[in-house]
Amino acid sequence: MREGRLARSKFYNWPDKLFDLCNILFMIGLVIVTLYPFINMFALSFNNANDSIRGGVYLWPRLWTLDNYKYIFNEASIYYATTISALRTIIGTLVSVFCTAMLAYTVSRQNFVLRKFVTVAFIFTMYFSGGLIPGYLLIKELHLINSFWVYIIPGIIGVFNMIVIRSFIEGLPDGILESAKIDGAGEFTTFMRVVLPLTVPALATVSLFVAVGQWNSWFDVFLYNSSRIELSTLQYELMKILQTSNTAATSSTAADQFASGQSGVTSVTPTSIRATMTIIASVPIIMVYPFLQKYFVKGMTVGGVKG
């Protein structure tokens, strides 16, 4: 273990050592509490469903099988849901990040006549929103119900994200944007060629926030598209399974019906289906977020102070 500055000094005595030991033990406990549920779900998802009922599967599958995954991906609803989840994450993130960055650039220009007006108009909506019912009625009036675009269009601009990107652009050295202008670049060219490449750290942060939001959302599916299975998402499908097993937990007959209704023969069980869906719904996020850590930590600090 690499020791810090204090360890070498004569002030590092036994109460300090005891404190450090307790602290490390506490952190290990925290890591276990955070990771155990995922490891357990992973083990259950690769374990034979009927064997799981016996209990005792904690950290590693006892009887390896891919049946749970095979079963789930054979379901038409999961096939659609995976596609839609991926599509809304990719399209939604690209569109939203580009548009939000463009708007952030315009309000970062100090001499732009509409700067104050646009900024205030957007920030106002952070505190006042129409709420569920007026929002729902609007979407209905616009005929966005039962359409893929209801996932994209209402979320084009994120005000918090705009503030993060704006703060980042304002922190760029003044000379860079000015020299682009002297070279004869218009505002749009400056934005595309100079600002976008320079704001990559902020864009990475915002992309992560938007992508995670898109991947994780189920409420808009529930509200607007629940009658069209080909527009469902993974999270919504998992949510339906969860709701069924929540009610199933209160009566055993419902649980049995669920298991047999889903499979016919009991090669899968509600527990194993749920574990498998949970892993499918969270693996993409687990794979991505650690690599963007230094960006989002910075983005949170900037946005948190100025927002």
Binding site: V31, L35, P37, W215, R274, A275, A281, S282, Y289
Partner: peptide, 24 residues
């Protein structure tokens, strides 16, 4: 490492979290 792991549950959806809580 502790920090990275501690950020994980924030990024997963409430649906996944609820699934974890209710099975635990």
């Amino acid at each position: 490492v502790v920090q990275t792991i501690s950020y994980l549950p924030h990024f997963i959806s409430w649906v996944v979290a609820a699934s974890i809580v209710s099975s635990a």
